[in-house]
Design a protein around this nucleic acid. Structure first.
Lengths: 220, 220
DNA sequence: ACAGAAATATTGTTGAACAATATTGACATT
DNA sequence: AATGTCAATATTGTTCAACAATATTTCTGT
């Protein structure tokens, strides 16, 4: 399942491996990533590792301080607000101009069905995963490789934020029904209403995230 | 004027220098960038240069072929269509939700005035430059550092496309009046009409670009 | 307890090395 | 003359070792 991509250059493969560590929460925000330690760990040279670090820094997942090294990015109020601004722009925009027959709509419907199924089995990471594919499908509606790639980067940053939450069950579950409603609106050719509904969704999700960050920071 | 950014790491500085070469057209699309030649030219090690190449490749300005090296990206129909999809999404979206008092609106107005001035003096690169700042100001309306950064990358790719055109005077000049109209609409708090006007603008500009590419490719 | 200095570790960058792959050129065949 | 084959050459992909520059830690004297 995990495509190692042997054709890609080492730096890209490395970046992918580290990215999965980041979004899975195995590397904590603020943690320093020592070049020596990681080049040892992955059995690559420091040079190759530095190339990977630079790519991830450009993606906003790492932060680079001169002569001090790279650190896992720490989510902040500002970054969450910014990320949700991007999401409103991209997801609402994609929905507003969605064409009723677009193949991505089927993917949205399937993701909703899957999310429901997982929720009934109390499999919260399954719900989260289905939710991610749902939103990725929405971006697919805009038929742009650049927007897709950009959203992927934003989604990764968002997952870094998710790591702060301690109750993952309440993160995605309440939104399954809203996803259903949005999908129905698109299926019935009401793109503007779908976009409006999505804006409500994202505002709510943003407030949830901010509240969670507040809790996490006063806890520390 | 050209901020060399001595604080930044070498790879970033290098990437910026090469980027300016790319958007100024000093490096032609399709041209191969030899590691040996460029590390010699900039007096840096191959390793540092490769880091810069990776960054620019991620930005879509260079293309990387395994064991063959990096090449200046060649604009295609597909890339132009995709870039204008991104622009419609970002620029129209920013305008639609623009707040009448946003400071970026003043920048838009100033850019329009400047463009007019330059046009009257037949300074076409001045017109082009003013046009770029105009559109950048529109993105500023959305108040998102991530969207700004993303747009910057897209704008650089677009400038690579501009390199194909042989008559730069007809590229930006006809759009000055449309920019004026759009700015007026935002100033008078008609964001939806401004967005609609911008969509017309972008569709027209896209067709111009595609036509130019067609001419350029049948000429070759 | 604390300021300053010496010692240590880490990053930033370079240069050389070598394997793996691609390109070129010479040569032979049809 | 055109084409295919194979050796010779050049380029990329990656590693390693080195060293300067900057941070961090440890030591020391007060």
């Amino acid at each position: 399942m995990t495509d190692d991509g042997d054709g890609l250059p080492l730096a890209d493969r490395l970046a992918r491996r580290i990215r999965t560590l980041l979004i899975s929460g195995e590397l904590a925000p603020g943690q320093r990533l020592s070049e020596a330690a990681f080049s040892e760990r992955f059995d690559v040279s420091r040079n190759s590792l530095r190339e990977a670090f630079r790519l991830l820094t450009k993606d906003g997942l790492l932060r680079h301080e001169a002569n001090r090294g790279v650190f896992v990015a720490v989510p902040s109020m500002a970054s969450i607000i910014d990320i949700y601004r991007v999401r409103r722009m991209l997801e609402c925009g994609a929905l507003r101009q969605a064409w009723q027959q677009h193949p991505a709509i089927r993917v949205m419907r399937e993701a909703v069905t899957m999310a429901r199924l997982e929720r009934d089995q109390a499999n919260w990471i399954g719900v989260g995963s289905a939710n991610m594919t749902f939103h990725a499908a929405i971006i697919d509606l805009s038929d742009s490789v650049r927007l897709n790639e950009f959203y992927e980067r934003i989604a990764a940053e968002l997952r870094l934020c998710f790591g702060l939450l301690n109750d993952p069950e309440h993160l995605h579950s309440p939104f399954v029904d809203m996803n259903d409603a949005i999908t129905t609106l698109v299926e019935t050719n009401k793109p503007h209403e779908a976009a409006a509904q999505m804006e409500t969704y994202l505002n709510l999700a943003e407030r949830t995230m901010l509240k969670a960050l507040e809790r996490a920071s006063e806890q520390a």
